[in-house]
């Protein structure tokens, strides 16, 4: 349903992505793992056209585009089939929770105001924020903001939602509520691609896992398989810290 092939991206001399390809089926939850600087976030940003890749193609459903030369129209068309959850939430600061969700529906997808309000209410209830409709982002905690962001991404009924380290900016005690929300979506069959450092979460929720290092995919496959029987030495090394059961990070 989503297929990405041969993505290349360099910032100056620094080659961040060196030919990344993968595909996602409907209902898949794909976890992209890897240490910092391995190109995970850049990959996701290229797929949403926030960065212009040097080369590569993306296909969502029947819509195909070149990541380097896609026209404005094409980019817009593809963005309407996806949505994005950011590390630092990026809620519209001048809109309250329910308006944040409505805006994408009314402006981005031409849904009527009445219908948008209805969908927005339902989405916010789904992420457990039924009592925070008229709160502005400045009045919400990080976890609540991220859940509004998830509701906003969900409301437009995208074919796939990209998550860029959705819990990395959160206080440890708030991580749980966001992960729980994402797990709920996974159970509902929402297709998601998640860049994350939360290993236990990736193992338990993801159906597929991709391990990236230095701009290439080292290994990809069934999440359970990759976590329990990694084939590549590099993957094993990366996972070892997690598998040995350290539960603290300094």
């Amino acid at each position: 349903m989503l297929s990405v092939s041969n993505v290349h991206k360099a910032f100056g001399d620094n080659e961040v992505l060196k030919g990344v390809s993968f595909s996602v089926e409907k209902g898949d939850v794909v976890a992209i793992l890897g240490s910092s600087g391995s190109g995970k976030t850049t990959l996701l940003r290229c797929l949403e056209f926030f960065e212009k890749a040097d080369q590569g193609t993306i296909k969502i459903g029947e819509t195909q585009a070149d990541l380097h030369t896609a026209s404005r129209q094409k980019i817009h068309e593809l963005r309407q089939k996806t949505s994005f959850v950011f590390q630092n939430y990026n809620l519209f600061n001048n809109k309250n929770a329910i308006e944040n969700v409505e805006l994408g529906l009314t402006k981005g997808h031409g849904v009527s105001k009445v219908r948008a309000k209805e969908i927005a209410r339902r989405s916010l209830e789904e992420v457990g924020l039924a009592d925070r409709f008229d709160y502005y982002p400045s009045e919400l905690s990080g976890g609540q903001q991220q859940r509004v962001a998830i509701a906003r991404a969900l409301a437009v009924e995208p074919e796939v939602i990209f998550f860029d380290e959705p819990t990395s900016a959160l206080d440890p005690e708030l991580v749980g509520e966001v992960l729980e929300t994402i797990s709920k979506l996974a159970k509902k069959g929402v297709t998601m691609v998640i860049v994350t450092h939360e290993m236990a979460f990736a193992r338990d929720v993801a159906t597929k896992a991709i391990y990236m290092d230095k701009g290439v995919i080292v290994e990809q496959g069934e999440a359970k398989e990759l976590f329990t029987h990694p084939k590549e030495e590099r993957t094993r090394q990366f996972l070892s810290r997690f598998l040995e059961g350290y539960d603290y990070v300094i």
Partner: peptide, 27 residues
């Protein structure tokens, strides 16, 4: 204004103009 405000608008299918008038200019 953080460029994330633009990006989040674009990510929910809005055009640059819509993001500008609904999100960026008011702020």
């Amino acid at each position: 204004i953080d460029k994330g405000q633009f990006e989040s608008g674009l990510s929910v299918g809005m055009t640059e103009g819509q993001v500008l008038f609904n999100v960026v200019f008011p702020q």
